[in-house]
Amino acid sequence: MGHDLITIYWIKALEYVLALSYLPLFLLFWRFATPKRAAAVAVHAAAPGWADQLAGFFQVPANLFFHPGHTWVRLDGGDTVTIGISDFAQRLVGSLGRVQLPAIGTSLAQGEPALTLDADGAAVPMLAPVDGTVVAVNTGLAASSAVVKESPYGDGWLLKVKSSRLAVDLKNLLSGSLARRWMDTVCESLGAEMAPMELGKVYLDGGHLVDGLARSLSPDDWDQVARRFFLTEEGGRHE
């Protein structure tokens, strides 16, 4: 059979299909064979970096909205929300004595002190994440505040608030990837405080995070350290 460019017979057609399909299929194969970016990022992150090392210790659930002062909001449907303190906050403070909660019917303003954590004779205020009126408090905390440490995002909730400006307030809060990035930044700050000056940055090689980080950093002024992170330092708040 003659090789005529115009006469296409099926074997030649198959050969052309093979030749033409090779490059696009190879490109797909190359993408498959190349390690995922996440792995490359993980390798990069494995280098000494406090944020990456510490962030893994603190839970930041994706379905919650976080105030930079380390209180969180969970939408309960309608304009009622549940409020609590973050995992970072309870780890920072350590063993809690009492949690002072506002009474039912109290009006809260976003960014204003709303509750107080008592521990070791010191009181550390925390900011309200939303505007609204307190409609319920977690009465279980009166007996023991241990549940706040055990389940800060579950049974350790603090208040239920009916908010009149929820949509607006939520715009000032952080959630999802933004919240995780915020936590990374918080951990950077914590790491900077934890690393001794003479050593500079050091690499973690496992272990458990100490409870009561603020006390580890500053046994005498731990409450000031906590206020700094909770944005309730006397003399003004920082964003």
Partner: peptide, 13 residues
Amino acid sequence: FAYFFLKLQGLVD
């Protein structure tokens, strides 16, 4: 990957 396509080519040929 290239070898596989070469073998296919040989088979078709």
